[in-house]
Design a protein around this nucleic acid. Sequence first.
DNA 1: AATATACTATTTATAATATAATTATAAATA
DNA 2: TATTTATAATTATATTATAAATAGTATATT
Lengths: 239, 239
Amino acid sequence: MQSGHRNLTQQLVHELGKDILQGKYKVGNKLPSEADLCAQYDISRTATREAVKMLTAKGLISSRPRQGIKVLDSKHWNLFDVEVLNWILIGKPDLYMLRHFLQLRLSIEPEAAYLAAQYAKDSDIELIRNALARMKSAEDGYDDTLEADIEFHTSILGASNNPFFIQLKNFIEIALQVNLRFTNRFKAITIDEYQAHADIFDNIANRNPQAAHDASLKTQKITVGLVNDAITELEEKKG
Amino acid sequence: MQSGHRNLTQQLVHELGKDILQGKYKVGNKLPSEADLCAQYDISRTATREAVKMLTAKGLISSRPRQGIKVLDSKHWNLFDVEVLNWILIGKPDLYMLRHFLQLRLSIEPEAAYLAAQYAKDSDIELIRNALARMKSAEDGYDDTLEADIEFHTSILGASNNPFFIQLKNFIEIALQVNLRFTNRFKAITIDEYQAHADIFDNIANRNPQAAHDASLKTQKITVGLVNDAITELEEKKG
DNA sequence: AATATACTATTTATAATATAATTATAAATA
DNA sequence: TATTTATAATTATATTATAAATAGTATATT
């Protein structure tokens, strides 16, 4: 159990959460009992029970007398929880999972851009402008591509001034990281990619919601299309 | 503290969660210490601490030695957690919150309909057909309007066969309940409303993604428009 | 005066132990 | 066969003790 700088409870939450998302403990199956977890990880019942409660709060497990601790059906999992998302990432998601991420991005981001053009404060616009500048730097190799990309897309969510969209920042951040697993980690941002992002920004800054929406949607459709093609190819290979 | 049939920990989670979402405990402010919570609710430290851990897992609070228990900034709250959503509902959300709900619905549901038309299994289609039939019954006063409406919209999310969209069922369910707070609770479903839903279903069943998307988007835009008008009117009154 | 260091008190973190409540399964009974 | 009762497994709750973390204060140092 890697300690990091977290307390025992948080460490156990991390270990078990990771194992559940990786399918080491399967839906409907039992985890070791409280007593067994204490023994396995050599920690007190106090810490163990608190970890179990935290995973319960995230919808991953249920724990009841006599029945023990069971993995809940995945429809109950808090997939937008930042820790759960990280456990998905750790679990080496496949192309189908990437498609799921991208389908929701396509659903969310164009509308976020629309709302940003409507409701962004000047300070919100500046944050997006800043992120775009980082992407320019990354294009020239002077900044981290992934970080700049994350900052750009999440700053638009922030500019929507809608708490639900803001909550989805975690989701987008992990989605971009999953995406990177399937592309070249170290490739620079191309001029085309940069321009697509700049278009979105310009339309937000110019307070043109529909154009901002459409610019965002255009890039999302291309990305989903690429993954659909990759999956089709994969399935044809398999037969 | 209402007991329901939940255990002590869950009861305290509910009480504190509700209070935080209602703003009784404000962002950045401290909650009573562990010891004080034990005294206030007359329960053991064990139960109290487990409740605190569960709220921590939902991103509502942090608890550290000497610092105590503090309400985290709302950007950390797991707004898509089913309990958190219920606490929002309990907290009597205003028109602005309704707009936030509707903005995300507009973002999610048309794309869910698109994916449903692409990926729904026959059994998924049957579930939507069933929900539509319930709406017809509700139109005639033979079924519950709200329940039928919830079943229709969530069954489409289910038919997307995308775990992230499926997770958002809770969100849509609460969104519809919030919406109802601002319309007539007992009004029957009108013929127009029913037809709009039937259009979405037909296009999903006929495997026409774009038409399903557009039919859904059309109704969502109307709803958002109504709330925007209501807010404009409200703000003009206030001056 | 400004900065670093050590001290102190507060609060949570962890552990250990005891007992109660819940409930799935098995056994007994009608 | 169906119903009830008993048993055992497991979590739920309570209590107590000690450790660790840390914000704030006091002290010492430059």
